[in-house]
Design a protein around this nucleic acid. Structure first.
Lengths: 367, 367
DNA sequence: TTGTATGCGTTATCAA
DNA sequence: TTGATAACGCATACAA
């Protein structure tokens, strides 16, 4: 039977690759023999196996994963859905996923929603059509609707950095935003700050809520009242660095001596604004970020922040997915963050003056 | 015919989704009728079409792209191969590719080589098995071997930021590294610098060579001899920011008053080192980067750099690929960069002193 | 040990 | 307008 298929899509038909039929014809054996020879099936003659394997190499045979997927009802493919990938936090998470995936013979579709729900729906639809074996989601906007979207397909979904998935059928691996935020603010409290600001973002509603909550709980534990003037969540832009930049003035007006930023990008914007205004960090203002992106160690001055194990988050998510595909029922995971103290945080100036005058610090109760 | 397939892979078999057979049975029509109804084929009754489309929605039918790919000999899938994706430059390029891809109904496999040739080979092999319709490559290490690897498969390959692909069969879209580097150094020359350093990297050999060449040409055009002591390419680390950091001392020793950095990451590392050493930028040292990553506008001080249109590079690459798949023969593209002058470059200190003393500047011929 | 037949889900061709 | 059939490339149950 010649390969002269009549299929001719409207554009040019792509060249057909070598198949086991081609090899079978050249070797004067049946296709099934070739199939067995190539995958080291036990029921095959040692000589024929060797002969066919060499022939396959000569003919530059590459097995067709599409055909295999059709039979196996699996694609060895997963989809990642993210808001953006230009974010340095995301990139590293993707690498973690991809690293484990390749080892296991999986490839990863990476798709961004660009914060556009319509686009995310389109992406999800495509992934379903492609029959991906699983999906990993970060920072989704219509994530609450996933149970409905996946009600029938039963495609496993792993969510990164969401602590309350909308359905038991969804698994997660996450940093505990509330707890880590608490620790960040606690660090500022221990340094003696009491006028502590928070800069948040609107395009990551869930984690922003959690980090804000951690901020609140830490202040409450220290018996410091929450001052709404110290909580800035600008709505006019999505750009995190810009958000940090424009938040400086209102924070100064509110009398902040330290600021907990939603993430490092916000902190970098704030740092930049301080420099332009002639404010010294940490002398005039202490700043703490979140994520510990690579650049955080190289800002001026180097940024104090809460490290998220980004690569590991991706790794764990993919491992969890593999476990599910293997029929196991993995536990959800909370991976610990780490406070990385660099040089953007210090005792407040008033406090430093007091110390130099040998006035004892009023103890702050941080529980 | 029941869906009771005997296929049972060693792990649990995944649930089988609704097929056109299932719909056909429920609608008492043939599968081909269903197929036609769902894709709005002309030869179909208006009522049956509507009836079947509604039924399909009810039954939550999702067309199987795997089966389609098998028959069409196309996958509507492309592969991207990059050294890393955590690099903020890469992330934006990927977004550009992915943006165009989704619009055209394509999905994108993103794979990283992590600078490991073995891994890159494994990745390429997987992409070939999956029958991707095309491949986009950035910063590959075994890229010179692509013609051999793709000799038979004829899979189109688009290369980003390589100006001399090893084969006519490969297309490229690129920034002109030599020219843009020339302009960066020219900017420093015009400011009056003559002791200009270069900091390069080893894990991007090609573009590093080109940017270095642009540096050399600019100096030569200004009749300034090349001083090897001013060219630093550290080999002990792959980390670009760290490279910038450790290059400061040798450059000062060599008497540099300005530095052209391989990219913004290197510049950020250098900026950090200057700050730690108490050097003022740009007063004591002028610094210029390459890429214009998002953070460049928020460094302290904001970084002068050469912008690469990152998103556009990705867009153009994917559009070029679509053109090829459509049977066209697109031209290779050189996209222009843009000098973005911020605040890390200024006249050299000695020159500033001279100006304050009203001593006229010796004109520098930068052609 | 090897060959034959069948099915995976879809589309295209040809017949009714 | 609709139905039957073949084909895409591979893997497997069964027959030889």
């Amino acid at each position: 039977m010649e390969q002269d298929h009549g299929v001719q899509s409207r554009s040019h038909s792509r060249p057909t690759a070598v198949s086991i039929y081609d090899i079978a014809r050249r070797a004067n054996v049946s296709p099934s023999t070739v199939s067995r020879a190539l995958e080291n099936h036990p029921r095959i003659g040692a000589e024929t196996r060797k002969r066919i394997q060499e022939l396959a190499r000569e003919m530059d045979y590459v097995p067709n994963a599409v055909a295999r997927s059709l039979i196996a009802n699996r694609t060895w493919t997963i989809g990642m859905v993210l808001a953006t990938i230009a974010d340095p936090f995301m990139g590293r998470v993707v690498e973690g996923v991809e690293h484990v995936a390749i080892e296991a013979g999986f490839n990863v579709f990476v798709s961004t929603s660009q914060n556009d729900p319509q686009r995310e729906i389109a992406v999800m639809k495509m992934l379903k059509q492609r029959r991906v074996d699983g999906i990993i989601v970060i920072a989704s906007h219509l994530f609450d609707q996933y149970p409905r979207l996946f009600y029938r397909s039963k495609t496993p979904v792993i969510v990164i950095n969401e602590q309350k998935p909308p359905s038991d059928a969804m698994h997660f691996v996450s940093v505990d935003d509330i707890r880590e935020a608490y620790r960040a603010v606690e660090h500022l409290l221990k340094l003696g700050h009491s006028r502590i600001g928070y800069i948040g973002v609107t395009n990551r509603p869930k984690s922003n809520q959690h980090r804000l909550q951690g901020y609140r709980e830490a202040l409450q534990a220290a018996s410091i009242p929450i001052d709404p003037a110290l909580i800035i969540v600008p709505e006019e832009t999505q750009d995190h660095m810009r958000i940090g930049e424009i938040s400086l003035e209102p924070l100064l007006t509110a009398g902040a001596t330290a600021v907990f930023c939603y993430n490092d990008a916000v902190a970098i914007g704030l740092l930049s604004a301080c420099s332009k205004r002639g404010l010294a960090v940490p002398e005039d203002l202490s700043i703490i970020g979140f994520d510990d992106i690579d650049i955080a160690a190289y800002t001026v001055p180097p940024l104090t922040t809460v490290r998220q194990p980004r690569f590991q988050l991706g790794q764990r998510a993919m491992l969890m997915l593999l476990a599910i595909l293997d029929g196991q029922e993995p536990e959800n995971e909370i991976v610990p963050g780490e406070l990385v103290i660099r040089q953007t945080t210090a005792r407040p100036a008033s406090d430093q003056a007091r110390r130099q005058a040998h006035i004892p610090l009023r103890p702050v109760d941080v529980r």
